[in-house]
Write a protein that binds this DNA or RNA. Structure first.
Lengths: 143, 143
DNA sequence: ATAGCTGCAAATGCTTTGCAAGGCC
DNA sequence: GGCCTTGCAAAGCATTTGCAGCTAT
């Protein structure tokens, strides 16, 4: 039996292992756990807090700071993308290709395909600068 | 001479006074100062910190907490609009009609007219919810 | 008079950091 | 072995809040 299994299930960490290797990140125990949750399992949109409770639910303890460090490392490596939704917390999206988001009344995120948005003529950009990203957020409220 | 003037200049606070009255906000001394800076003078996009240093520059002391309280009160009254740009700080925009933003490499905001953006078919909204706002942010970087 | 503000300082809440111990190559 | 990570706790920041004293109305 593999030492990393949780109650009853023995998650297959090989995929997560390859992902991390390929991204140039050391496959440490906490990172394997997190990568497994992010890429082989659950939701696409997570906050540090959500990820922390998901890990906890699998029976493993990962320090708060480690979750932030790992998430930032994943983002730097391009495995996840930081998404700005509000000032309350930082969201990470495992879907890294350009697209947009809808925030429902419960605070959950939903993807909006990139091609739903089209841009006309933008005001002139400052000299020597180019577009780094275009992100749209549609906020919903109860009717 | 009006008691609210600063070194050399005597700002005309009557416009600010009317604005506040009309919005149902008591025209107190700090609020008059801030409203004057926001609506009769300077930039359209401010953070609490920027506004604080602008006030300080006019020779008046306004408590940090009061700046936040006032800004939030202005936002509640519809005089300014909160804009989410990044997780670092909260921005307020004196331009309250729907429009979008461009963030240049120096972190400054520029307006993008609402009609530059057009939306195709959004994914279905959750039942009982409607669109509250649509905001787009274009981030720039050095070329 | 009195409900609403201000100032000040303490409290929050998310995120980062410092450092010693441990793990990966 | 050496460098990167983890854990833990402390530090940081932007923002909020509690409370006593002031101020518009």
């Amino acid at each position: 039996m593999h030492p990393l299994q949780s109650a009853g299930r023995a998650p297959d960490l090989t995929a997560a292992h390859h992902l991390l290797r390929h991204a140039g990140l050391r496959p440490t125990r906490p990172r394997l756990r997190l990568a497994w949750l992010l890429f082989c399992q659950g939701p696409r949109h997570v906050s540090a807090e959500m990820l922390a409770s998901e890990v906890a639910a699998t029976g493993f303890a990962v320090a708060q700071g480690t979750i932030y460090n790992a998430l930032n490392a994943f983002a730097r490596a391009g495995l996840v993308r930081e998404v700005v939704i509000d000032g309350e917390r930082t969201w990470f999206d495992t879907h890294v290709a350009p697209h947009h988001h809808m925030v429902d009344a419960a605070g959950h995120l939903h993807d909006i395909p990139a091609d739903v948005v089209s841009l006309g003529n933008l005001p002139p950009l400052p000299a020597g600068q180019e577009i780094a990203s275009v992100e749209l957020v549609v906020r919903l409220r109860p009717k």
